[in-house]
Design a protein around this nucleic acid. Structure first.
Lengths: 147, 147
DNA sequence: CATAATTTAATTGTAAACAATTATTGTAAC
DNA sequence: GTTACAATAATTGTTTACAATTAAATTATG
């Protein structure tokens, strides 16, 4: 086998992971100007997505939904609390649990976030069919990684 | 329009970006045990992928290839230098350029990295056809983000 | 009941990522 | 040739991310 063939598997262009990594990173960067207006980072934004729906959650559940651990979430939630978008208090039933509840200000922010998805959609050139296909494949990979 | 419909676009499950973000993150995490053996982080690994091929580059070029800026690369390259995998020196022709060159130890590492791609491949349940499709779509998105 | 095991969040330490700025070098304009 | 502009990397400050550990509360086991 030639030198080049032997090492082909280590070429950047033959990695499936790299475009995934780069794409995620660049998309998060594209969000920035839109999220800046809401005073949110991307990770804070996806945390708010959950809370806009559920109104209440806890660190463990958020971590499961977002694939994040308490080392990431604890400072992030303190930040969101300091901005007045959420409140944090221990559960009375089980004091190990930290209950995260969205505030009125947090709910108000939802209105201002309404146009973010469509603005982002315009940055990503994928038709509906392709987007659905990509979506399915990504969740398939995500599921296969869990096991 | 009902309350639920109005805010559907802000549901986590309707975001294409989130599985991308989560998937990239989880795959990088999956790399960790394999890369630990090489004393490399994921970002250091993809930097080495370039250098194993090209032997030499500079900060600007690496940044373009990897979608990273000097704020990320400068400390990373210093780290790789301290591990003995690369050397850093200013170009004589243009002292603004920092030339990054792989060392003998850096090249030796390539042998030990040879089985990383196949090991990672086993973690991701995608057949060849699907993987190629995903690959194309990701680069399509990446390209559309540039413009 | 008392001790062990488990669960949950917080903390610590390291690396990544990027925006904004700075410092230096090189190039262009006059 | 000097001054303005551009290019390049480094620095600074903030946030993200995670592994490993710690602390506290709860549950299970003897």
């Amino acid at each position: 086998m030639s030198e080049s063939q032997k090492y082909d598997c280590l070429k950047l262009e033959n990695q499936i992971c790299f475009p995934l990594y780069a794409c995620a990173k660049e998309i998060v960067r594209k969000y920035k100007p839109f999220l800046d207006k809401l005073d949110l980072t991307y990770t804070q934004y996806i945390t708010m997505l959950i809370l806009w729906e559920k109104k209440q959650s806890n660190v463990k559940e958020l971590g499961k939904n977002l694939y994040l651990d308490s080392g990431t979430l604890t400072p992030l939630l303190k930040k969101l609390e300091s901005k007045g978008y959420i409140s944090r208090q221990r559960s009375e039933r089980d004091e190990r649990n930290l209950i995260v509840t969205i505030t009125d200000d947090g709910m108000k922010l939802r209105e201002r976030a309404l146009d973010v998805p469509s603005k982002m959609g315009k940055c990503v050139r994928l038709d509906k069919e392709q987007a659905e296909l990509l979506y399915k494949m990504l969740y398939q990979v995500l599921d296969s990684l869990d096991s």
